[in-house]
Write a protein that binds this DNA or RNA. Structure first.
Lengths: 164, 164
DNA sequence: TATTGTTATACTCTATAACTATA
DNA sequence: TATAGTTATAGAGTATAACAATA
């Protein structure tokens, strides 16, 4: 079943089992911006997951707190767009945060269909704690860069942000 | 149920419904490297999904072809590590590619448990077609940058790649 | 009529456990 | 005893449809 079929039977294995991590570097994959983004994001995500678990937060909950942590009061619909979530997922997400007293969902007076998300003092406190840890992870993930290069990277990324 | 409870009742809505896309910029979210990576990756992914659909490929299938497109012959286990997939997922992934004659899974002579992945001529042809489209998407996603800045971004990202 | 939020549920994707073959 | 791959399936996550309230 694995035997090469006809036209391929004369092809020989070159280096099966070559260290894949090195291989990813000099294969076409290594050239792809998308692959680089994905790899970095994956490592980031894993570290964040671990760090936030101590605070009983998942990544989305953290991002939600971050988004409402400076006086913005998005509706659930707004949050869905920003985090690319289905509105029904936002119900679960925000209710879980409300259950922990980290935010409040307040009906918007001039559009009683919508619910605005407001952070609570507890939410602010927990967010700041979490943000400090995430900042450390950000530094760890970019440890190979100088402060100057790290800023350059952030600046370049912000210039290509979809919604800027 | 949405009514703020006690301590929060005197807090007022500031700007509920503020355009969320702008809000993400000057909220703490905008400062987070992780958020920027996620947003860019999301847009990238959406464009890739559309473009690859015409070639009857999904993103993982494309990345797999990319990885084996230069003579490397990773095993399924290697591919699982690189794409952060479960070995059982790699079975489905590689079998689907084999069914389309885009790669061959060959038992490794000196370790008959393992299967090495080799690209076929059809696989190479389709990959090149796909890669051309992805290159266009890469340009579109980084359209805000000069060629020089685009290269700088790639270089910075490669320096912080987890496995370099 | 359209939109926001909600619920229930179908669907898809991922991870797990058990197994075969090989080392 | 450990590892690569496979299969079936449980579990988690996502998307869909139908609905209520409001615009």
């Amino acid at each position: 079943m694995v035997v090469p079929s006809g036209q391929d039977s004369e092809r020989a294995l070159v280096h099966p089992g070559v260290p894949p991590l090195v291989a990813a570097q000099d294969s076409p994959l290594g050239d792809q911006l998308f692959f680089a983004l994905t790899q970095i994001q994956h490592e980031f995500q894993a570290s964040m997951h671990t760090a936030l678990a101590d605070l009983h937060l998942d990544i989305r909950q953290y991002l939600t707190l971050a988004f409402i942590s400076d006086g913005h009061t998005p509706t659930q619909h707004d949050l869905a767009q920003i985090l690319h979530l289905d509105p029904s997922q936002v119900v679960t997400l925000t209710k879980s945060l409300e259950a922990q007293n980290l935010l409040v969902r307040e009906t918007v007076p001039w559009d009683r269909r919508a619910k605005a998300l407001l952070i609570t003092p507890e939410g602010t406190a927990l967010y700041q704690e979490a943000a400090a840890q995430i900042a450390q992870i950000e530094e760890a993930c970019t440890a190979a860069l100088s402060r100057r290069d790290r800023n350059a990277l952030k600046s370049l990324l912000h210039r290509i942000l979809p919604l800027s």
